[in-house]
Amino acid sequence: MADVKKRKPDEDRGLVERAKDGDTAAFDELVTKYSPKLYGLVYHMTSNHEDTNDLLQDIFAKAYRSLRRFRGRSAFYTWIYSISVNMTLNFLKKRNRHWKISLDDVDSAIEFDKEFIEQTSKTDPVRESNIHELQLRLNEAMMELSDDHRAVVTMFDIQGMPHNEIAKILKVSPGTVRSRLFYAHRQLQNHLEEFRR
């Protein structure tokens, strides 16, 4: 969260101006800089790696085509996040409503992530349960949320963004963000009841 708070609103200005002038290397730098963050955003909203990859390609292509229309009234970071959220929400509307998470969609690499193992071993019930099962349930719980609620949970809880930054991206009030978060947490609590301490 601290990382996001410290961010200067115009830190990408130079790169954006160069990219606007046709410097493709400058845009490549922006892609390199933002692809991990945006990957996280899109992945946690879609719960599917392939969809995430395709969507992320489309998001950067769209941003590149629209770059000259970007006036710099907001930070580039806010602008590209808005594009990503909107495109992902549109994608989710089109995706089959009967889409279900399978074990194939669960990230197997996480089981070997040192930080993850450390975090999960601190908590008693999780120690007893299968990490894979926990991941599946987490994904299921996330996908049970409405698309709008999942977006705020992803940005706030998973990506550590502050309320007012999320509000700017979604073009809603910070109060709306708080209320969506409260409702989403209540739903998540019900779905993850068995993993309670």
Binding site: H44, A109, L134, V153, G160, L188
Partner: peptide, 12 residues
């Protein structure tokens, strides 16, 4: 619930 959801940030 929030703690559990935060674990998803390790999915890379």
């Amino acid at each position: 619930a929030q703690q559990l959801v935060r674990l998803k940030r390790y999915e890379q």
